[in-house]
Amino acid sequence: MTDITKTDVLIVGAGPVGLFAVFELGLFDMKCHLIDILDRPGGQCAELYPEKPIYDIPGWPSISAQGLVDKLLEQIAPFKPDFTYNRMVSSLEKLEDGSFRVTTDENEVFEAKVVVIAAGGGSFQPKRPPIPGIEPYEGKSVFYSVRRMEDFRGHDLVIVGGGDSALDWTLNLQPVAKSVTLVHRRPEFRAAPDSVNKMYALQEMKQLTFQVGQVTGLTGADGKLSSAVIKGPDGDVEVPCTRMLPFFGLTMKLGPIAEWGLNLHENLIPVDTEKFQTSVPGIFAVGDINWYPGKLKLILSGFHEVALMAQAAKRIISPGERIVFQYTTSSTSLQKKLGVVEA
């Protein structure tokens, strides 16, 4: 039997809004567990634009996206949330007692009385490169990550991209592959200079080929690749290719959320504006993923949404208990929870 992790509130997505939900729920003594597909908290703020300033966070005339994430983590630390990273929530089902069972793509099982979907633009997934006819080869000859290096042993490997992933795997797989061709559309890389130098040194020793250009075609049959056509500065080049690893960054996809029976509105989850609850009682949606009349995809709107959501979540988790509205500035009991006065 699989171990089941139990928590009060399961939050899908650890972006800024998911993180702040921990704070608002924590003030009402609800324990949170967050699951995110990335390997760290922050969502789009951390993945897409960590260095960029944000100018519309109240009280912060300018704060970098990563800076905001760091401050949020500091703010929610007293509530000791649990995090599970590198996982996508693949299924969500309602149990007979009204609670929810959530399963990840690695088959971990969670049970929670309340589920909060704070999944932003969906889950980050590897971007499919702009190569015509690539789909039938995916998962058979074309892979977007390396699970086992052995899977590449003895293969004619083509790696596409110019970032650290492309360079690291070029260097790591070169000793096991039969041949390695690195394809990038220009001779400048976004990767660590040391890796780039090592790559050029291997090319010098004819241990690998670096080809400037873009992959424009694939040949093969039944999912088995045999060669790739690269359009370079001097015309088309055909190189042997039985395995391909494209590294074209990440994109956001709604993913399995579409199948959770939440009556989507243009790929967004409709909620009411009192509780930010979905069509399924006990499942809430906050931040960029939800929709209601007048919705604005702003971080600050998400912060407001989680404050109201927390009230409704409390009523589900502690039915019958009177909810006292309090300010953190003046409430000793809230201050004890925040650890700013002695408990």
Partner: peptide, 14 residues
């Protein structure tokens, strides 16, 4: 600029 060139790596048919 360099940052934009980096992002263009992810575009289609550059």
């Amino acid at each position: 600029e360099a940052m934009e060139e980096d992002m263009l790596d992810f575009a289609y048919d550059v």
